[in-house]
């Protein structure tokens, strides 16, 4: 089968590799579409800290935002899965440690992450190996492109949930990438007044076209009361900015991860009685996201900049083909196209 391999930093090739075989409790998925995420970009570029933290090695096999159809099942797997359109949880816990047993498998010390951690081969390939326990069925109303956007959607849903905003609240989202804009959409679906802060004028225009109440740059951000701030950038100074502008007694949610340590003055947290919450991964938000896409409460498709074939991916990751189009941040790879 064809797969995208990263044999060294900033180098991607499409190669023939052996297709996976499903072991007990596992299925093989024929991959349909895959989203390219900031994590993929930084691992492709050889971010050594991130790769070491992920306990992965070259050649990397990336891709963790995906959907497809189950084409093979292993022993002990319910036959109902065969032929189903699915997406899945990226986070694969060991299943028997204390964290896994009390619902925090996405923080399991020994977890695999599909296409990210401990060399579990990713979805940028014609076939993907997944434990059946990680599968989520997609209804017909969730298209393949939407299916590839469930994983970032789950991160955004959980971030909005952690911000504890209600229809009386005014939320500021820092960052106009996929997660930032999805946070804005999930917050809108709750009736929250949503503002975004970004740098890219086209992305701010896209945010306005999505109906946000305000789209600002750091230079023209109004001095409003921000009942919650979600930090969804990769800039190391922005978590402190979030703490500085949030209303005292309210919440800051950190979902962006910078390449460098992002320091916060904890004295300000104490004096402002602010709570800061970290969010990692979509696990507990996957089904809610599928339901939101299926009902139309959230439509993620305006965030898609372009859909490419596997053969074009190296050009996108090396900058030959631009990642963004008219502010839209998300590139999808269609495995049926190449």
């Amino acid at each position: 089968m064809k797969a995208f391999l990263v044999p060294a930093a900033s180098t991607g090739i499409v190669a023939d590799v052996d297709p996976p075989r499903p072991g007990p409790g596992q299925v093989v998925v024929a991959v349909s579409q895959v989203g390219i995420c900031g994590t993929d970009v930084s691992m492709f570029n050889g971010d050594e800290t991130r790769i070491r933290h992920a306990r992965s090695t070259h050649p990397l096999r990336l891709g963790h935002e995906w959907n497809g159809r189950v084409v093979e099942i292993g022993d002990e797997v319910d036959a109902k899965w065969l032929g189903k359109r699915v997406t899945g949880d990226t986070m694969l816990g060991c299943g028997h440690c204390e964290r896994c047993l009390n619902g925090r498998h996405y923080l399991c010390e020994e977890r695999y992450e599909i296409g990210v951690r401990r060399d579990w081969p990713g979805a940028l390939a014609e076939r993907l190996l997944v434990p059946a326990s990680a599968l989520y069925e997609l209804p017909d109303s969730v298209t393949d492109a939407m299916g590839a956007l469930v994983e970032p959607g789950g991160n955004a849903y959980r971030s909005v949930d952690a911000a504890q905003v209600t229809s009386d609240s005014r939320l500021l989202v820092l960052g106009t990438g996929t997660i930032g804009l999805l946070c804005a959409l999930f917050a809108q679906a709750r009736g929250v007044e949503v503002h975004v802060l970004g740098r890219d004028p086209e992305a701010l225009n896209l945010a306005r076209s999505l109906g946000v109440d305000g789209a600002w740059t750091a230079e023209n951000l109004p001095a409003l009361r921000w009942d919650a701030v979600i930090e969804a950038t990769n800039a190391s100074g922005m978590p402190q900015f979030a703490v500085d502008v949030v209303e005292p007694g309210r919440r800051v949610v950190l979902v962006g991860i910078a390449d460098d340590p992002s320091l916060i003055d904890s004295r300000i947290l104490a004096r402002k009685d602010v709570t800061v919450v970290g969010i990692l991964g979509a696990s507990m938000g996957i089904q809610v996201t599928i339901d939101a896409y299926a009902s139309g409460a959230v439509d993620p498709l305006p965030l898609v900049s372009r859909t490419i074939g596997l053969d074009e991916l190296n050009d996108v990751l090396t900058g030959v083909i631009p990642m963004k189009t008219a502010g839209a941040p998300k590139v999808l790879v269609d495995l049926g196209r190449s």
């Binding site: 916060i264 009685d273 800061v276 990692l280």
Partner: peptide, 14 residues
């Protein structure tokens, strides 16, 4: 805090 999902609560008085 993000990658280990640790909430940090600032507490200002009672």
């Amino acid at each position: 805090m993000t990658s280990r999902m640790i909430p940090l609560h600032g507490v200002m008085r009672y």
